[in-house]
Amino acid sequence: MTVHITPRRTYYLVFAVLMILTATTTGVAFIDMGPFNVVVALFIASIKAVLVVLFFMHVLHVTNLTKVFVAAGIVWLAILIALTLNDYLTRGWDPISRPF
């Protein structure tokens, strides 16, 4: 297996983008977007996470098997969120007033 060597310039570039995105998160925190406050913050955070995983954790240039394991981590997070939301989003539907 060949080892991919990422040029140092790429790391600096990604680092700069991460800093810009951090500044953006801070900036938009001063703007009230109502229900989109969290959505925007999470969207920016997700982009940053993807950059870190792809470049600093070298997932961009690893074997497909490693990519499968990275994807599994994301799928498992999706399971956690989806089945938890399955509770939260349906609580209002509950027709029965329960004593507990």
């Binding site: 498992w76 399971i79 089945l83 399955n86 509770d87 939260y88 349906t90 609580r91 539907w93 509950d94 029965i96 329960r98 507990f100």
Partner: peptide, 22 residues
């Protein structure tokens, strides 16, 4: 095994619908 955890929570305020699925 990762899809069934809500069965530990049937008697909490977890929604009945989530409970049904779990």
């Amino acid at each position: 095994g990762f899809l069934v955890w809500g069965h530990h929570m049937f008697t909490t305020r977890q929604s009945v619908y989530a409970g049904l699925i779990f």
